[in-house]
Design a protein around this nucleic acid. Structure first.
Length: 465
RNA sequence: GCCGAGGUAACAUAGCGGCUAUGUGGCGGACUGCAGAUCCGCAUACGGGAGUUCAAAUCUCCCCCUCGGCUCCA
């Protein structure tokens, strides 16, 4: 089954096909480096992490680029307020970003370009746009001339005339058209600035991404991602700038993720209703958070709340529990295999089929739950070693993409197993003597240190939480 | 106003022409000294209205509601 992706540009599902062979360039808009990342950023990072992992699983040679925007109002405001150089602020939050995302199991991108390190290229690009007649200078500022491009709005599907320019902010009188956007702006008093042919100032937000993505991925590349709120104006403007510069199609597939909401509002820094990743990880296992994010299709919004996270913990625990049992059983199972080995292979196929449909991780997870139920049944029917190993392999495939399972627990030391055998033996004797008080005490005290006992018909099972 | 994404059982999510789904929670069983885990079963669905079709949650049209975008924002 071929991989299909929902392309915002066409509004349709399209078969995924790189420009050349197996090479895939992938660019995702990262964060503004002035504050700790919140759960909305986590959703984006995890979404595209999974997409990247799945592309790699399908044999694509992915070059993944995530940018950091450090030349932007909030960063500048912050650097002035704290009285530290911009560079220092940028570095601090890049470090925090990597820490947070690392804890969430997000694999590192190949390149993390920083806007302020690309000033020469940005200025050159702006000059080129002026030279080619796509931009104009006005009072030390440079604007992109929207009227100079024929296909305005092809990503967001809107027409210039239909929009209420200045609906929320007054139109700048220096612009020729209200839809024109700034490429270079004058510095304000006390702000960091760079020298340019037009004025001492700084670049606009959109041009930074055009320049950095094309620098590292070429003038045309395959995948560009981000949250839906970036479709307009940011990505629309990126397209206009990039294609004006290169005269080539910019990006083949536009992938947009749904937003993280709180109640009926999106989570955002400016609305001040955000939960930072650090705060959430104080209360929840990173694997649970990751599962929570992947249990909804990436293009849909997710409502952030404690109940949903708790539920995610329960649900993930169900699957992990099955995995634990399989691993434990495989240590003592009889050699050989049986027909369940095919069920394990089928599980991987179902998983891939779901992921092939625009990275439908939710559907993929549902298939794992079904598999887990079958596995649980199988475990009670005298499982064979090879089949159990095949099940573990299947979970390894799921985990290669989702990264939500644990295969080895910290407490798994060589001494622990024989020690537990002794304790369980003694407790079984107490139970045989109907000394339930002692039996319960042993169980309770083990639980306190994170070891759970389960009395089953076929014997006592233990596991480390 | 315009563009986009949605409205699925108690809740949260998939599905998107015929196979009634997945998890959490609830109820009832099996197992059990108890607890937990696990299994089996039950209940409660497709925003409203018209239409197309042998057949619609899935297609068409109209309406209602929610969110996002048209300032910065993953």
């Amino acid at each position: 089954m071929p991989l299909k992706v929902q392309n915002t540009m066409s509004g349709q599902m399209e078969e995924f096909q790189p420009y050349q062979g197996k090479k895939v360039g992938m660019y995702v808009c990262g964060i503004n480096t002035y504050f700790d990342s919140h759960m909305g950023h986590a959703k984006s990072a995890v979404t595209f992490d999974v997409i990247r992992r799945y592309l790699v699983r399908n044999g694509y040679d992915v070059t993944y680029v995530i940018n950091f925007t450090d030349i932007e109002d909030h960063c500048i405001e912050r650097t002035i307020k704290l009285g530290i150089p911009l560079e220092q602020l940028t570095e601090k939050y890049i470090g925090e970003y990597h820490k947070d995302m690392g804890r969430l199991g997000v694999k590192k991108a190949d390149i993390y370009p920083v806007a302020s390190h690309h000033m020469d290229e940005i200025i050159q690009a702006i000059q080129k746009l002026i030279d080619k007649g796509f931009a104009y200078e006005s009072g030390g500022e440079v604007y992109f001339d929207v009227m100079a491009v024929a296909d305005f709005g092809k990503l967001s599907h809107r027409k210039i005339d239909d929009m209420q320019a200045g609906a929320r902010v007054a139109v700048d009188e220096r612009k020729r058209s209200p839809m024109d956007f700034v490429l270079w702006k004058n510095k304000k008093e006390g702000e960091p600035f760079w020298k340019s042919p037009w004025s001492e100032g700084r670049p606009g937000w959109h041009i930074e991404c055009s320049v950095m993505s094309m620098k590292y991925l070429g003038e045309s590349f395959e995948v560009h991602g981000g949250g839906t709120e970036l479709v307009f104006p940011h990505h629309e403007n990126e397209i206009m700038q990039s294609e004006a510069l290169s005269d080539k199609p910019f990006v083949k597939y536009w992938l947009h993720g749904g937003l993280m909401n709180i109640g009926d509002e999106k989570m955002s820094k400016s609305l001040n209703n955000f939960f930072t990743i650090k705060d959430v990880l104080k209360d929840y296992d990173p694997l649970v958070v990751r599962f929570f994010l992947l249990n909804t299709h990436y293009r849909k919004p997710i409502d952030f709340n404690q109940k949903a996270l708790a539920e995610a913990g329960q649900a993930l625990g169900r699957m992990q529990n099955t995995l634990d049992s399989v691993i434990a059983a495989s240590k003592t199972a009889t050699e050989g295999q049986d027909e369940f080995i095919d069920r394990a292979k089928e599980a991987v196929e179902k998983f891939d089929t779901a992921m092939d449909e625009d990275f439908n991780s939710r559907d993929a997870i549902a298939s794992i739950f079904e598999f887990a139920r079958d596995v649980n049944k199988y475990l009670e029917s005298g499982p064979k070693k090879s089949s159990l190993e095949e099940i573990v392999q299947a979970f390894k495939v799921f985990d290669e993409i989702l990264s939500i399972f644990t295969f080895e627990k910290d407490g798994d030391s060589h001494m622990l197993a024989p020690l537990m055998e002794i304790i369980i033996d003694i407790r079984q004797k107490a139970r045989a003597d109907k000394n339930f008080q002692l039996a319960d005490e042993i169980r309770d005290r083990l639980k306190e240190m994170g070891i759970v006992l389960e009395d089953l018909a076929e014997g006592v099972k233990w596991k480390v939480l």
